[in-house]
């Protein structure tokens, strides 16, 4: 039993990382309909930027600067790559973001390194025990910060003018444009917010996922969580990602260890077979 509790605890911590990446992905999808396959790689770039900054300045400054640079980077990508193809079919956008993902991966490899880098964790990874269950401060911080970001975002979407405008754009682009909302600015803003969240995820996750150009592939685990929760639903994605994280860690207890790596993908396919609309029953029909 303790094994199970321990596995679930570890799983929720891993799941929180998936959830943060998922969050960054969904915010863009919800308000712009863009399926951004490069989200994971934007996160990886942010982690590399923070890695370089950490060498030359104190932690707090490096983190804030990384969030700002990442936001600017997200804005640049939106203006440079996404906006010109905004009105093309989903098919084109998916392929373009895949191309972008590859450019970012190659770019990171050339600028920094293609190898795995040891990333100093911001919070210690030394475990402490409550009862027989081990916790690491890093995982607890990851869970806490994820929850804070989710809470802040829900407040932002609900109570600020910008947040309301974003929800309006998500519902109907044309109508909100007619109501005087600057749809293009909203798109840019969405990418900035999403890139910053991705940066937070990257900084927190780098010590666990290891920092290297292929780190962004973690996004596929987020996809599994997003689909499990119901595509397009933020609470669904977070619950789904937690379940994926827990399931991965639990699988080690019952199945040969090799399954851990592909368990998320198996769940992804299984959900698509059994219930494509996910737990929360959302199914995007238009794309």
């Amino acid at each position: 039993m303790e094994d199970v509790i321990q596995a679930v605890t570890n799983g929720v911590a891993t799941g929180s990382i998936y959830a943060l990446a998922a969050l960054a992905f969904i915010i863009i999808f919800k308000s712009t309909d863009v399926i951004n396959f490069a989200q994971g790689d934007m996160m990886m770039i942010s982690a590399f930027i923070s890695f370089s900054l950490l060498q030359v300045m104190p932690t707090w400054a490096a983190v804030i600067l990384t969030l700002l640079i990442s936001g600017a980077f997200g804005y640049g990508l939106e203006r440079g790559v996404i906006r010109p193809i905004m009105d093309t079919p989903v098919f084109t956008i998916v392929i373009a973001t895949l191309g972008l993902a590859s450019v970012l991966q190659g770019g990171a490899g050339l600028i920094w390194t293609f190898d795995v880098v040891v990333y100093p964790p911001l919070f210690t990874m030394d475990a402490f025990k409550i009862g027989n269950i081990a916790f690491t401060p890093l995982s607890l911080w990851i869970i806490a910060i994820s929850m804070m970001i989710v809470a802040a975002l829900s407040l932002f979407f609900k109570f600020t003018k910008m947040g309301t405008a974003m929800r309006a754009v998500a519902q109907n682009r044309t109508a909100s444009s007619l109501m005087g909302i600057g749809v293009k600015n909203i798109f840019s803003m969405t990418f900035i917010i999403s890139a910053s969240i991705g940066a937070a995820a990257g900084i927190l996750a780098a010590p666990i996922l290891y920092l290297w150009p292929a780190m962004g592939l973690v996004l596929i685990k987020s996809f599994a969580g997003i689909i499990l929760g119901g595509f397009g639903s933020i609470p669904g994605a977070i619950v789904g990602c937690m379940i994926i994280g827990a399931a991965e860690n639990l699988s080690v207890l019952y199945l040969p260890a090799q399954f851990k790596h592909i368990f998320a993908y198996i769940i992804l396919l299984a959900v698509l077979v059994i219930r494509p609309s996910g737990i929360f029953g959302v199914m995007i029909k238009k794309v």
């Binding site: 399926i35 098919f91 998916v94 596929i220 996809f223 595509f231 992804l268 396919l269 698509l272 494509p276």
Partner: peptide, 21 residues
Amino acid sequence: LPCLRLFGMYIAMATLAFGFI
């Protein structure tokens, strides 16, 4: 078979997962 009920990007994700598996 699972992809039949799905649309564009879901198929992309399903095949992506398949490749990894």
